[in-house]
Every structure is written in structure tokens, then in C-alpha cells.
């Protein structure tokens, strides 16, 4: 049953659920028995101090790591162990903590790569190009142009990404993830290393994406102010364990969280 939030957005049933995930690298336990869910249409934050296992968690969801124990349920189905591109095809897109764009390619081309999972014409048609493959690309280009318009990056459409300032590169990366038309968008520290103005812009875009396309968003972020303002629910990790889970207010007042993350006496 969908229940509208204060600002009128609709939050639906569970989209993704992780159950009792345990992930270890050799003797190091990165994640221990983690369970939480992400509901359709919400902005879900994963926070925690350095080394808490946030990125590992995201990598598990995106299929990059395979946990030794536990299950990932996506859209009501238990997910078998799969390759990242298979996960992408299911409708999960992500950005990276360190920008992972094709630096020599233009913004437009980078965004077009986000459409690859949606291209259906095989190598043969791609090689012939004229006809079906061309029509398909035009349709994809149109989607991409809507994203360019949405993110306000028309002026850098033809600029090689490597020449862009950091904040814009982050925006292009968000654009590429959007181009994949994901059901679930994973953002790994979308605001790391940005100045205040860039952060404000990025916040606006994240809220707009969620509002305009109804995309569910899971994000990792260090900036506590950003997390508290942006997200509907927060899950807190520390040393690979789940410390708390709830609305920003609940989490903020949780004594265990205050001790582990915010530090004692703050």
C-alpha cells in the first residue's frame, strides 16, 4: 500500500531486500549478518565511519561481490549469484566513488554507453548500421538528450569528459546511470570532494531524479548534513555490523550511533 510522504511523494512496497549478508575477504569480515530493505520510491542512505563496509554493501547489491552467506531479494525474487552486467540488466545502475567515466569520450558518448543494456540489435545489424540499428540509436539518443536537458549539461554535450571540472564529471556520471533507466540507483559518495555549491546542485538533482522519474535511490554519503536532509531512511554500519536503521531523526538520536559515528559528546 503506497503511503504519501510529507512532500507528496509515493513510497511503495519493498523493492530490494538484503537478508543476513555476510561477506569476508580471507579472514577479514567486511560485513556480518546485515539485513535491511529498500522501498520503492524512497531515498535510502547507508552511512558509517571509514571501513564500516558501506561500499562493500553497495558492491554486494550491484553484484560485484558475492557474499558467503545471505540472500539478496530484488522485486520479490531471490537473486541468484550473477555478474554485474546481469544485475545492470535487471534495472540496477550505479555511480562510483572515484569517477569511472571514459575520459577521452564526450559527455554525449558517455551517456550513450549507459544505454548499452537497452540496445537489442546484434553485432550484425550494428555493422550494417543503416536501417534498424540507426533507428534504434536515434531512439536512445532522444532518451539521452532528455537527460542532458534534465541535468542542464547542454553546453558540455560535445566536450571530452576528461576536460571537465570534477563537479561536472560527477554530474555526467549521474547522467550515465540515469540513462540506464534503472529501477534502483546506487550512488557511492555522490558528493565526495565537492564544494558547497556543487553539493547543493547535486542534492537538487538527486531529489529531482527521485521526484521526476520515481527512481529509488540508495546512497552512501559522508556528509551528515546532506544525509539527514536528503534521505527518507538511514541504515548505519560500523565494523561491518548494522548499528541502527530508521528515519534520520531516529538515527540521529540513537546513542549507539552517536558514539560510533558522531563521536561522544556531540
Amino acid at each position: 500500500m503506497a503511503e504519501p510522504t510529507q512532500d507528496g511523494r509515493k513510497i511503495g512496497g519493498t523493492l530490494l531486500e538484503v537478508k543476513n549478508i555476510t561477506l569476508s575477504f580471507g579472514g577479514v569480515k567486511a560485513l556480518t549478518d546485515i539485513s535491511f530493505d529498500i522501498k520503492e520510491g524512497e531515498i535510502r542512505a547507508i552511512i558509517g565511519p571509514n571501513g564500516a563496509g558501506k561500499s562493500s554493501m553497495l558492491n554486494v547489491i550491484s553484484g560485484f561481490y558475492h557474499p558467503q552467506q545471505g540472500e539478496v531479494w530484488f522485486r520479490g525474487q531471490k537473486r541468484a549469484s550473477m555478474r554485474p552486467y546481469e544485475v545492470a540488466r535487471q534495472g540496477i545502475a550505479r555511480t562510483f566513488q572515484n569517477i569511472a567515466l571514459f575520459k577521452g569520450m564526450s559527455t554525449l558518448d558517455n551517456l550513450m554507453t549507459g544505454r548499452i543494456t537497452h540496445m537489442h540489435k546484434n553485432l550484425f545489424w550494428q555493422a550494417i548500421w543503416k536501417g534498424p540499428a540507426e533507428r534504434e540509436e536515434i531512439a536512445h539518443r532522444e532518451r539521452v538528450e532528455h537527460i542532458i536537458d534534465f541535468l542542464g549539461i547542454q553546453a558540455i554535450r560535445k566536450t571530452p569528459v576528461g576536460r571537465l571540472p570534477y563537479g561536472l564529471q560527477k554530474r555526467v556520471e549521474l547522467g550515465r546511470a540515469l540513462a540506464a533507466e534503472a529501477k534502483l540507483l546506487l550512488l557511492d559518495e555522490p558528493m565526495a570532494g565537492m564544494n558547497l555549491e556543487e553539493k547543493e546542485d547535486m542534492c537538487r538533482f538527486i531529489l529531482d531524479v527521485n521526484d521526476e522519474f520515481g527512481t529509488t535511490i540508495a546512497l552512501i554519503e559522508h556528509d551528515m548534513g546532506v544525509v539527514m536532509d536528503l534521505s527518507d531512511r538511514v541504515v548505519v554500519l560500523d565494523y561491518g555490523k548494522k548499528l541502527a536503521d530508521g528515519t534520520p531523526n531516529e538515527v540521529r538520536n540513537d546513542p549507539a550511533v552517536i558514539e560510533a559515528y558522531l563521536g561522544v559528546g556531540h
Binding site: 532522444e142 538528450e145 532528455h146 536537458d149 547542454q154 554535450r157
Partner: peptide, 9 residues
């Protein structure tokens, strides 16, 4: 009479 560049066209 009028043109506008929209969606790259």
C-alpha cells in the same frame, strides 16, 4: 519563422 534548439536539435 522561428527555431529553438531543444534536445540537441
Amino acid at each position: 519563422a522561428m527555431r529553438e534548439k531543444d534536445y540537441g536539435i
